[in-house]
């Protein structure tokens, strides 16, 4: 596999009225050809700044970033020919144009010959399932349709690397699934994809490797399984209880990050974290407060791992 992205010691600061703000601090990572690479982190962690630098929209303050071996500072034009990006949300379109007109405009910007434009547009709009809406004005589109149009637009120049910045934000489950399926299809074609998202299930489903970014620094990087295993000392339990005094349980320090879901009083499902890993011990301890109907140790999901690693930021 060859390296498509090489980031070494990347830092970026912004000048604000209050002083300098560090958005990225000595970030380093690499992405191989054909990978789907996820950048996950809370708002303000530095995900979008990273994407902006990688897409040549922003200059780094220091460090070295190479895309296809080209430097993002000095060879931006060579990089731009081979990449494209999609930003989440409903913006970035010309609402008064139809989908077809929008695509024609960008085809011209990407210097696609007039003779080839119709075929290309038909193929791309079919790929994203918008061919039936090609003559519809974009301002009448749903969020999902706009996102799919963005995907079609970003494929105009046949890019080898695509950046998807929160592409499923605000989409309904069906729209999000459709978009995920398109991303899978693109990945199968060998296109390298950089994805940022707040949806952990989505990242788990799509990404070959994931980087956690927090406060402008990459704190963990690896395959989703590796990231989940990095939390092996995390003991998460889910229990179904019959309990009369739930408040007493809530006051108990033994159960950390306790969440309670009421089925029907006095029946509850609780999720919690504990220092103790032994389920027998936990069950015995819980029996002091309630009748334990069911208890199991939870398999750690990417979301659990994310919350575990980002806890300090989330709690701030």
């Amino acid at each position: 596999m060859s390296k498509i992205i090489e980031v070494n010691g990347l830092s970026r600061t912004y000048k604000l009225k209050e002083g300098l703000k560090t958005a990225l601090d000595n970030v380093s990572f690499e992405v191989e050809k054909g990978e789907v690479f996820g950048l996950l982190g809370p708002n303000g962690a530095g995900k979008t700044t990273t994407i902006k630098i990688l897409t040549t929209l922003l200059l780094p303050t220091s460090g070295e970033v190479k895309i296809f071996g080209y430097d993002v500072v000095s060879d931006s034009n060579k990089i731009r020919d081979k990449i494209n990006f999609v930003y989440g949300g409903e913006k970035g379109v010309y609402g008064r144009l139809t989908a077809k007109e929008y695509m024609h405009y960008f085809c011209t910007l990407y210097k696609i010959k007039n003779n080839n434009q119709n075929d290309l547009i038909n193929n791309l709009l079919t790929l994203v399932q918008l061919h039936e809406a090609e003559n519809q004005k974009i301002h009448t589109f749903s969020k999902g349709m706009i996102q799919r149009l963005h995907i079609a637009r970003c494929l105009i120049n046949n890019p080898q690397l695509i950046f998807l910045d929160e592409p499923t934000i605000g989409l309904d489950p069906l729209g999000a699934k459709l978009l995920r399926d398109i991303v899978k299809q693109l990945s199968e074609k060998g296109i390298t994809i950089i994805l940022t998202t707040h949806y952990m299930q989505e990242a788990d489903e799509l990404c070959d490797r994931i980087a956690f970014i927090r406060g402008g620094k990459i704190t963990l990087i690896g395959k989703p399984d590796y990231i989940k295993k990095s939390c092996n000392n995390l003991n998460l339990f889910e229990a179904t209880l019959s309990i009369n005094d739930i408040e007493k349980l809530q006051k108990e320090n033994f159960f950390r990050n306790l969440s309670i879901k009421t089925i029907k009083e006095p029946y509850y499902i609780i999720n919690f974290e504990a220092n103790e890993a032994d389920i027998e011990f936990i069950m015995k301890y819980l029996s002091n407060f309630a009748e334990v109907l069911d208890i199991k140790k939870k398999e750690i999901s990417l979301e659990d791992a994310y919350i575990f690693h980002m806890r300090e930021v989330i709690n701030k």
Partner: peptide
């Protein structure tokens, strides 16, 4: 305002020409 500027900026046509 319409957030299309960055799409134009990364296109292979110069901003002046556009």
């Amino acid at each position: 305002w319409s957030d299309t500027l960055k799409l134009l900026l990364v296109s292979p046509v110069s901003l002046s020409a556009i």
